[in-house]
């Protein structure tokens, strides 16, 4: 992903995008399509979180709280009060952006471990409130979430909606990371002091990215609840947060494709391989430990390195040819003066 030419590697990307668009026409199994939609909804959240964790290096382990707020906003407004689902999705994004702002305002000032603990606490608090405020959230019993109207309510239509939203979010994050903003985020991750010393507004950049991740989490939550069609506080257990976090770390920090593959693989694997489903979160912990110990840069980086090792290095010849005419002209001009 180089900044110099956005069109480099456009062909595989186009092919991948086309394959994703055509997926509902190929896949006949409804369950697999549901799984693909789930991956898409999770990816919308992870794409935003990736800017926070992968690029800015802020270890937020509480994003499940924002997902829960988005889901409940959707279920309450669209389900109980009958708002338009598409409008409600946008509203859920805005509400979660506001929540991200309120959470980030104090906690992003804190050092590393303190920040991780505050976000962990935030995730726990949201679940606690979801159980406590029975009149709003249905308590432990939960709430039904409505489907989208018309063609968007069908499984493939809903898949395309999620795909469109995921594509938009991916495009936004990709744009952020390619340009000056992304560079300043990486600088904050690698050394906040050095970043501040060259004029990066550290706190404001962190907060902006965190709010953006809140918006994506809200949209993801709205789509997620409609996909699940029924939500309870148990849906948003802390392990889900760990799952988002692990798929970014495993995929590789500072890349977009890596976390995407991580999300897809980690969502699909326990569903398709039965023994892993039983181990569940233990498996995420094991993966996280292995990646941290063996390839702290993430598996994506490992793949890059293997490819680089396999591909023979291209040696470019640079023949040095002096431009004699210009040299002569310059010398003449110098002599005249």
């Amino acid at each position: 992903m180089t900044a110099s030419s956005p069109w480099r590697g456009a062909l595989p990307r186009l092919a991948g995008g086309l394959a994703l668009i055509l997926l509902p026409l190929v896949v006949s199994n409804q369950y697999h399509l549901h799984l693909a939609s789930l991956i898409g909804a999770f990816w919308i959240l992870v794409a935003g979180l990736n800017l926070v964790v992968g690029y800015t290096g802020q270890l937020s382990v509480g994003h499940v709280g924002l997902l829960a707020i988005g889901s409940y906003t959707f279920a309450i407004l669209a389900g109980k009060h009958g708002w338009d689902p598409i409008l409600t999705t946008v509203v859920a994004g805005l509400v979660c952006g506001l929540c991200g702002f309120l959470v980030g305002l104090p906690s992003l000032r804190l050092p590393e471990f303190y920040f991780a603990m505050s976000t962990l606490a935030f995730g726990l608090i949201v679940t606690e409130l979801a159980v406590a405020r029975t009149e709003l959230t249905g308590g432990g019993v939960g709430l039904p979430a409505p489907f989208f109207p018309g063609p968007l309510g069908t499984p493939s239509g809903f898949y395309w909606l999620i795909l469109a939203a995921a594509g938009l979010v991916t495009w936004l994050t990709w744009n952020v990371t390619r340009f000056m903003w992304g560079r300043s985020l990486v600088a904050i991750r690698d050394s906040p002091v050095a970043a501040a010393s060259v004029g990066v507004p550290v706190f404001r950049a962190k907060l902006t990215v965190f709010v953006f991740s809140g918006v994506t989490a809200g949209v993801a939550g709205a789509l997620f609840s409609s996909l699940q069609s029924y939500i309870t506080p148990d849906t948003f257990h802390f392990e889900l947060s760990l799952f988002f976090f692990v798929s970014i770390i495993i995929g590789g920090r500072g890349s977009i494709l890596g976390p995407f593959v991580g999300t897809a693989v980690l969502t699909a694997l326990p569903e398709l391989v039965a023994p892993l489903a039983k181990l569940g979160t233990f498996f995420y912990g094991l993966l996280l430990l292995l990646v941290v110990l063996l390839v702290p840069e993430g598996v994506g980086r490992l793949v890059q390195r293997v490819i680089a090792a396999l591909r023979p290095p291209v040696v470019e010849h640079h023949a040095i040819r002096p431009d004699l005419d210009r040299l002569r002209a310059a010398l003449r001009a110098g002599a005249r003066r």
């Binding site: 270890l59 094991l286 430990l289 941290v292 702290p296």
Partner: peptide, 28 residues
Amino acid sequence: RVITRSNEHLWLLSTLAVATMVQQAVGL
């Protein structure tokens, strides 16, 4: 192994991983 590396706070991730594993193992 983690603490000898750079100050990237990798220990937060590794202890989180161990904590998750022990919790789930005990749960199972």
